[in-house]
Design a protein around this nucleic acid. Structure first.
Lengths: 346, 346
DNA sequence: TATTAACACGAAACCGTTTTCGTAGTTCTT
DNA sequence: AAGAACTACGAAAACGGTTTCGTGTTAATA
């Protein structure tokens, strides 16, 4: 076995070979008016023959623009985040950007480290969703530093009011309201909320919608009807206990996995879905689609969210106005929709 | 609102401010022996105060090493790939590498474009899994070019013999054999294979294991018992038809979604799982865990696969031997395991 | 024919580092 | 006191491009 390494060819090589200057080569390849037709053809032919490609790193250094976007998300093995990521990747790619992804693993420290790693020239801007720990600690100095350096930042889904930047969220409160309204309209009155700890801003918003819907329909909110579950390591017994102790006929879950667990618990207790208990979840993933019964759920349109986030970021990146003074930040809201399946009746 | 942009500070700034040369600053920050204690302290203090961080791009250009890994996968909203990716990301990060990810979307052209985009200096090496279309076309010139340029490449799961490089696969044939054996041992004889088109090398391997297990147990292979499904857009009716036309008592599916569909079809036909029909799938995702009945499945240990791939790549990247002559490539096999759940009996 | 304009190209600076090498100025030898 | 040996630093090249500006040659103009 004998490989000939076709090492990357540079302008310098071409220049030397063709006995012209580097500048001439550079211009010739850009089809500059300055260069004679003859020379251009010669250079271009040579470049093509040896498959010349400009070195991205050199261009990045010169332009102070990498065409890389940094994405920091709490988890990658998670349907919602992957859909958002797909949206980001697609849009970014269509605009000639690459995506560097880092996973914070819900850890504050990792989030900080990842940001610092990328903030030193590797990327032109960040798109991120806050880790659980960051939201808990309420410490956003790493974000502040980055924005103060003039690096554009777009936050999605798990955002914070503490930082001024572009944001993309869904209408969590509203859609939770609608979901609960839907349960009420189908005759349910004893509606539970299965949620995570409230330092997740999305959970908080969804709880608000839940409460508002109850109130507007003359149902008094009962603390007992709220089941708070850890984000991971769910105990089935706790859920079963919840449903056997309380007389529930409708459930809103803040995610898909919780909803599946509820289906299991409810069925185990011998109750029929949706007739005796109706269930609505969040996140339209495979689980919702393929569970039996299939799950009525809130589609968050993650891909759209990703696209919008990427678009906002690239806009900021490319508008080199650096207008400092009257820089303006937007918050885009993606309208979630309810996908009706078998776990509810209408 | 008035922001003061703390623009990134460079060696040049420090040098100017402290009235020393750039080289002195550089050395001082590296604690070089060459520089006097006084100067070092002065420089280091200044750098710390202004939060100096070296520019990654400049360092990359100088060192001709980016500490970036390029990952190209067919799909991101896919449990197996995300787990592999998590493994890659974790390991890479622990070694100080960042990961740039591109999605080929099962398209040959996108795969090529993405490779070219990254191959011009943006990354030190590739980890990838071939797109469906690439496997179909059997065209691997883009891979060949990259390896010929001396860029390390590690292929995982969807690999090809046409390219000499490091590879990470699972023991597809073996584990399929074991899965079928398990069905046979539990008394099943009329075992179906639900698979994709055979240009997927993994499907081919699994089919081989399936056939070998039948043969070794004196069961004749029947073409009728193989159901080939498209990768997407599955028609339920086709599956139901398959199960009503054939007298099946065991099923091996090459993925989770196929398995879930089979559960649905079998149940619709009024047959009991696992007593009348046992089902085993591939990919241990949420669906397998939460379906009813839960699914016995082949765990591919994607995260481990990713770790191994990343480790192999980084080893190659960092061994600058460029030994050309006797460069040696490995193929690591991750041992898949069968996770027993309710869809089979023993 | 002298002047000017157009043409075609090269030198050099620049992006932000690292690193080699050269050299003032000081201290140590003998 | 002269040479050797340090010490502490700076100049410059290099990584691979882009871009501005200057200039020698030729062609057009007066």
């Amino acid at each position: 076995m004998h490989f000939i390494l076709k090492r990357k060819i540079t302008l310098k090589h071409i220049a030397r070979e063709l006995e012209v200057s580097i500048s001439t080569v550079s211009k010739a390849l850009k089809n500059s008016e300055e260069i004679s037709r003859d020379t251009k053809e010669k250079v271009q032919a040579f470049a093509k023959l040896y498959n010349y490609r400009p070195n991205n790193i050199a261009i990045s250094l010169k332009n102070k623009r990498t065409r890389n976007i940094g994405v920091i998300i709490p988890d990658i093995v998670h349907h919602f985040f992957t859909t958002v990521f797909r949206g980001i990747e697609k849009y970014a790619n269509s605009r000639g950007y690459n995506v560097i992804i880092c996973v914070s693993d819900e850890s504050f420290d990792k989030e900080v480290i990842n940001m610092e790693m990328l903030a030193n020239g590797s990327i032109d801007g960040f798109i991120m969703s806050l880790s659980a720990e960051t939201q808990q600690k309420n410490d956003f100095n790493h974000l502040k530093e980055v924005t103060e350096q003039g690096i554009p930042l777009v936050l999605f889904d798990r955002v914070t009011d503490e930082i001024e930047c572009d944001k993309v969220i869904i209408n969590d409160k509203e859609i939770a309201y609608q979901a609960v309204k839907k349960l009420i309209d189908s005759g349910k009155r004893k509606i539970a909320l299965v949620t995570t700890d409230s330092y997740f801003n999305v959970s908080k918003k969804r709880a608000e919608g839940y409460k508002a819907a109850l109130k507007d329909n003359g149902i008094t909110f009962e603390e007992n009807y709220v089941l708070t579950l850890p984000y991971q390591e769910i105990e089935k017994s706790k859920i079963e206990h919840f449903f056997s102790e309380n007389d529930i006929d409708g459930v809103l879950c803040v995610n898909e996995v919780f909803a599946i667990h509820c289906i299991g618990a409810v069925q185990k207790l011998g109750m029929k879905i949706p007739d005796e208990v109706s269930i609505i979840g969040f996140t339209d993933g495979l689980l919702s689609k393929y569970s039996v019964p299939s799950l009525t759920t809130v589609a968050q349109h993650g891909e759209r969210m990703g696209e919008v986030a990427a678009e906002m970021l690239i806009e900021k990146v490319e508008s080199e106005i650096e207008d400092d003074e009257n820089e303006t930040f937007r918050t885009e809201t993606i309208k979630a929709t309810i996908i009706e399946r078998e776990s509810t009746k209408n």
